[in-house]
């Protein structure tokens, strides 16, 4: 029973940290985008706009709870909840430091993939249940994109797993004590990064919400707290992908002088910055370009990389 209580407390603390991080992620993104576009960004609420996420959160909670006509109410409510819960669930297995993780499961990376594949439901159901053609189009696009790039993501992960010889995220980090996998698996790293941007629906792959064509895609008909849940899901997913890149390719908590957690946080922050950076830099691609690139470039490249990795691993044994 004690172990259960300890796990509950740990999960609670982790959830609190994550949600705070995700709230400040929105502020960070808005401030950074403003800097990239040479304007100020939100700087009125609190010093440097630090209370802005709080104000946004309170505003979203107190908004009118609105549902469009003739929606499937259960599904309409379920969709944002699925998005948020699956995004948060991943953190159960991500190691932040040498001893700092909730669970060291021997199929850790599979759990991450499973949670992200269930997360697709949030998008599909949200678009379908809204009873709106733009939502439906957005969710169809989005789910096609998510399914396609999940494959590329998985191939990159398989290469890493082959190199590390384990599915446990803790073991994968331990295997990088000497050489980080970004050196051993550069192809997997690049394709993982591209697939990660596509998986989180971020620019330049933000077709699901392409506002000029689809208003806002699958979340068009959502407002108030339900909208906030979608957004929390999206921003947590960005943090997740940054944490995963750090864990799988950049040695996790390994690094000289500083304690492991600090190194992990620093690397993760670098990738979060990268996500914002490319959003401010690159224009959106077309849907056919996106699909062609995914299926004709990333997937074959990933497969080839897996085969070569497997051969080298066998030869080295």
């Amino acid at each position: 029973m004690n172990a259960l209580a300890a796990a509950a407390v740990k999960s609670g603390v982790l959830l609190f940290l994550l949600l705070t991080a995700c709230a400040y992620m929105t502020l960070l993104e808005r401030r950074l985008l403003a800097k990239f576009q040479i304007r100020y960004g939100p700087n009125r609420v609190g010093p440097f706009g630090l209370l802005q996420p709080l104000a946004d959160g309170i505003k979203l909670i107190f908004k009118e709870d609105f549902a469009p006509a003739r929606v499937d109410l259960v599904v309409y409510w379920l969709a944002p909840a699925i998005s948020m819960v699956t995004a948060l669930f991943v953190y159960a297995v991500i190691p932040f430091g040498p001893q700092l993780y909730l669970a060291n499961v021997d199929v850790g990376i599979l759990i991450v993939l499973a949670a992200s594949s269930v997360g697709v439901y949030g998008v599909i159901l949200g678009g379908w249940s809204s009873n709106n053609k733009y939502s439906l189009l957005g969710s169809l696009r989005s789910s096609a994109q998510l399914i396609s790039y999940e494959l590329a993501l998985s191939f990159a992960v398989i290469s890493v797993v082959l190199t590390a010889g384990s599915l446990s995220l803790v073991e994968i980090v331990n295997a990088q004590a000497r050489v980080w996998f970004v050196v051993l698996q550069p192809v997997a790293f690049v394709s993982f990064l591209i697939a990660a941007v596509a998986e989180t629906n971020r620019a330049p792959f933000d077709l699901p919400e392409a506002e000029q064509e689809l208003i806002a895609g699958y979340q068009t008909e959502y407002g108030g707290f339900k909208f906030a849940m979608f957004y929390i899901g999206e921003y947590v997913a960005i943090v997740t992908m940054s944490a995963l890149v750090t864990t799988l390719f950049w040695g996790g908590w390994h690094g000289p002088f500083l304690p492991g957690v600090v190194w992990f946080a620093l690397k993760m922050f670098a990738f979060i910055f990268f996500f914002v950076w490319i959003r401010a830099t690159l224009p959106r691609v077309r849907h056919d370009q996106l699909m062609a690139f995914g299926w004709k470039v990333l997937v074959p490249l990933g497969l080839l990389n897996v085969v070569i990795t497997a051969i080298i691993v066998v030869l080295l044994q």
Binding site: V107, L110, I111, L113, A114, S117, V118, V120, Y121, I124, L125, W128, L136, S139, L140, S143, I147, E150
Partner: peptide
């Protein structure tokens, strides 16, 4: 884990896709 990835993550998604289309 495979159960969730394959069935929940792929097969039912396809079902939903067909229904929506």
């Amino acid at each position: 884990a495979l159960q969730v990835i394959v069935y929940a993550g792929a097969i039912v998604v396809l079902f939903l896709f067909v229904i929506m289309l």
